[in-house]
Simulated scan of single mutants.
Amino acid sequence: MTIPLQNPPLYTRAAFATSDANAEAVRAVERWPAWPNGALALVGPEGCGKSHLATIWTERAGAAVWRPEIALADLAGRPILVEDADRAGDETLFHLINRATLDGGLLLTSRLRPTAWACALPDLRSRLNALTTAEIDEPDDALLIALLEAQFRERLRRPAPDLYEYLLKRMPRSVAAVRETVRLLDEAAGEQGRPLNRLLAREVLDAVEADLGDALDD
């Protein structure tokens, strides 16, 4: 029997991997409470670290996290985080953006820039177009290696040092691919009782490479 060992993910500033791909977004978030008009939109592809960075800000600012079932009146006077803000609804966004300065700050996350969000209210459109936006780019090599290290560390694994460069050449270049690749290697090493090295990685990736790419494209 293989018992999977894994540390819970850490959403602290120390655990957040920084590179050229996200450094400007980090600086933008850390400028709070000096955001223009009290609001900032944090955008980037799925799994790029938006929620991690937003959680760091939420802890620092003492912010509330808005959800559809929460009445806006109950959040008055507090900084607010809205995840997937492009789905929050026109009335909600209009109200929150108007109150951002009074409430102490508003952080909105999305995969799309605010200028691309669908909205039917002309007054909201003008506000979305004017929002200050911080964008996280697709991960570069430095960020992918840092994410690989963090994922292996969460699973209490210490791979061979040369494994990281090898994986960069073989796996799809995305955060989702990092997570799935580490999961597959962790399971293979545990089931086979083998060290995490290039030989194991080649066998695993040769067996699943096509399926891995298809799954991440879905």
Rank of each mutant, 00 (worst) to 15 (best):
D86I: 03
E69N: 14
L81G: 07
S126Y: 12
T109N: 08
R67L: 15
T101S: 11
L75I: 10
A64E: 15
N98G: 06
E91M: 05
T101Q: 13
V82F: 04
P79I: 03
V82S: 05
N98T: 05
W117D: 10
L107Q: 04
I80Q: 01
I97L: 09
I80R: 03
A88F: 02
T109S: 09
G89A: 01
L96E: 00
D74Y: 08
R111W: 11
A120Y: 09
R111T: 13
R78W: 09
R113I: 10
R125E: 13
L102H: 06
A71W: 07
L81E: 09
A76E: 15
E91K: 04
L72K: 09
A116T: 10
E83Q: 09
A76G: 10
E83C: 04
T109A: 08
L81T: 07
T92E: 00
A71R: 15
S110Q: 05
R113M: 13
A63F: 01
P79W: 01
L112V: 07
R67S: 14
L131K: 03
H95S: 05
A130E: 10
G105F: 03
A73G: 15
A120R: 15
R113K: 14
I97D: 01
L107R: 02
L121V: 10
T101A: 10
W66T: 05
R113H: 14
T101V: 11
A130F: 08
L81N: 06
A63H: 02
A100C: 08
A76W: 08
L131S: 03
L131F: 06
N98V: 03
L93Q: 01
R67Y: 10
L131T: 04
L106E: 06
A100G: 05
A85D: 00
F94S: 05
S110C: 07
T109C: 08
L75N: 06
D103I: 03
E83A: 08
L93K: 02
R127M: 05
A88N: 00
L112M: 12
L75F: 08
I70M: 14
N98C: 05
E83W: 04
S110I: 04
R67A: 15
E69T: 14
A118M: 14
R111Q: 14
G77E: 14
S126A: 14
E91W: 04
L124M: 13
L108Q: 03
H95W: 06
A63S: 05
I70Q: 13
G77N: 11
P79T: 04
L128S: 06
A118T: 14
T92K: 00
D86H: 11
A63L: 02
L75R: 07
G104W: 00
N98L: 04
P122I: 09
P79F: 02
A64G: 11
L121D: 12
F94T: 02
G104A: 03
A71L: 14
E69L: 12
D123K: 10
S110F: 04
I70S: 09
L96K: 00
P122W: 09
A71C: 10
L81V: 14
F94R: 04
A64R: 12
D90Y: 00
N129W: 07
A116I: 07
D103Y: 04
I97H: 00
A71V: 11
L131E: 02
A88R: 01
A100E: 03
D74S: 15
L96Y: 00
V65D: 11
R87G: 07
A76I: 11
R127Q: 06
P114T: 08
E83T: 07
P122G: 10
L108Y: 01
L131H: 04
N129M: 13
T109D: 06
A118S: 15
P114E: 06
D90S: 00
